[in-house]
Design a protein around this nucleic acid. Structure first.
Lengths: 324, 324
DNA sequence: AAATATTTTTAAAACGTTTTAATTCTATTA
DNA sequence: TAATAGAATTAAAACGTTTTAAAAATATTT
């Protein structure tokens, strides 16, 4: 089904059909209606491939998230996709990591994506940037546009909360990647409260359940009283590990997560965590990206102050003596 | 960067460039090398849009999952995407529901996807099928190709397990959609063991945390001893609800989920659940879809027998007397 | 050296749209 | 009625590839 066939049926040129279907006021009202009716009848769908080619505009945006296993990322990607759709763009959501990033960028470039949303700038992304494709990140970086939660603040608040409740020896399951913002927050909070940093109770991992689980078992051996986890998923793993060892949470050990994924409210004990307002971040990122598509804008580096969501895993209620 | 420019630089026609870049043996080895070198140097990426147009082949497959919040679906979509990528196809992952399905299919058709993978056949999908686009489902349906776990068996096994352990009054948080296979399994197991069906302890919902939570609170009031949940996510909600009411799991109430998402192993108590081998299903679906792309094949309706994963939430260990 | 076979290259058409500039048709004015 | 203005339509070019069939270049056989 092509415009040509509609044109023949109506007895008009393809140019007229093309204009009519896009509701141009250059074409006579009656012909327009006729064309539209026939198109509807034949269930005609314009070919976006052809349109993209001639307009040199694909309306495709590439989105990269670290994985499809952590709901924070998938829900965030979905929020991006939704915002983009509302603006007439459609998105390719891909899971990207060191191994496959080259292949993904290659694919994005072949399909002539008009913009990329990702979490970090590596060699491959940099090449894309050099070809002129706008990139907006959802993690802080020196060079480049981004919108992110202020993870330093988040790390600080999480750690401070544990300290204020009375925990001293606070372990940290940290991220090897992204940025060391959360780590900086953790360290600064400790030193602000006169607690010395103990590298033996800091472990790094990618934030999966298993890493939280193993990390917590190890930290338990080293006698921690509290654990700040890089994300909620690893916190859930940590809680499991501690319960297996008959540790009471929060009475014996307090836990704080990061992300505020939905299950953090439903696990038991529910998780005290740092909220990442993914809808807000997604909206802002799309806004910035689309602006970059049209004009040469100055750099946008936006940090959103995160909120600490206080739930059961830290013992705010069970350790009554403390004021926070 | 177009083939034309490479052609001019090398002093050859675009036809030659096109052939050379696709490694045709019609073109002289030396010229081929020269062309490839220049292309590499200029960082040339073939334009998939143009290729799709002329070849009348996009290599795009559309994937629809119910949401981006339930890891079972996102991980499944990822498995599909990976399998497709290996075969040279790339995929558009979309969240589809009653409200937006029309829009999604419209988009798929405009972009000339070559196949669709989704969970159920509605009016919109049917229209796509009629235009000749192959569709493979991951849920059982009368008409159409699918690969799915045998949910009847799953439902039966889950319920039977609860019965064998000694629970009698078994509630069910069931799905309103998809299929009533799990429900059939639940009912058949009960009647096989001479337990009468009580509709007052069957609730339907979409399988989110909150629904499990609310459903369990309600079921608790009605005095159930066990709950079979349509998926793990709602089971996690249910566990939360019961713990809030100081119900011991599994001593007082046993819980079985469905899906075997990763966290079901890490929550406390860990969840007895019906495994859905998503990688296997994904692989099979891709195989069938790609076959349908090329030949007119007969209908494939594949049901995989599911495995019950026994963990802590059912009291197999704590209710020692029972043999299963 | 001519004839033939083989290899290599290429011009041109095609894919389904949009856009531009020119043309045709219709209405208005003189 | 002729001239003009405005509205509606269209032919043709363009987008960046692939493919086909023909042409050109080179190698092989007589």
């Amino acid at each position: 089904m092509r415009q040509k066939e509609i044109a023949e049926l109506v007895g008009v040129s393809v140019a007229t059909v093309s204009l009519a279907l896009r509701d141009s006021d250059k074409v006579n009202k009656k012909t327009k209606e006729k064309i539209k009716r026939i198109a509807e009848l034949l269930n005609y769908k314009p070919n976006e491939i052809a349109r993209s080619l001639v307009c040199k505009k694909t309306n495709i945006i590439g989105i990269i998230i670290p994985n499809f296993s952590i709901t924070y990322y998938t829900e965030f990607a979905y929020a991006l996709q939704n915002n983009l759709r509302k603006k007439g763009f459609f998105s390719l959501i891909m899971s990207g990591n060191k191994e496959n990033i080259k292949e993904i960028i290659e694919m994005f470039l072949r399909w002539r994506v008009e913009g990329i949303i990702t979490n970090k700038i590596g060699f491959e992304i940099l090449r894309a940037v050099k070809t002129g494709i706008p990139v907006v990140l959802y993690e802080k970086v020196e060079e480049g546009d981004y919108v992110s939660v202020n993870k330093f603040e988040g790390g600080y608040k999480a750690t401070e909360h544990l300290i204020k409740i009375g925990y001293r020896k606070i372990g940290f399951l940290c991220s090897p990647y992204f940025e060391e913002e959360r780590t900086r927050g953790y360290i600064e909070a400790l030193s602000d409260y006169g607690i010395s940093i103990d590298k033996k109770i800091i472990f790094s991992g990618l934030g999966y359940f298993e890493e939280g689980y193993k990390g917590a078992k190890e930290l338990l051996k080293r006698g921690v009283e509290g654990i700040f986890c890089l994300n909620d998923v690893s916190a859930i793993g940590a809680i499991r590990a501690l319960k297996e060892e008959n540790v009471r949470i929060p009475e014996d050990i307090g836990i704080v997560g990061f992300d505020n994924i939905e299950e953090s409210k439903y696990i038991y004990p529910s998780l005290t965590t740092v909220n990442q307002p993914k809808e807000k971040i997604a909206e802002k990122i799309v806004e910035i990206l689309l602006k970059k598509l049209n004009e040469r804008t100055e750099r946008s580096q936006i940090l959103i102050d995160p909120e600490l969501i206080i739930r059961e895993s830290c013992g705010y209620k069970k350790r009554k003596g403390v004021k926070i």
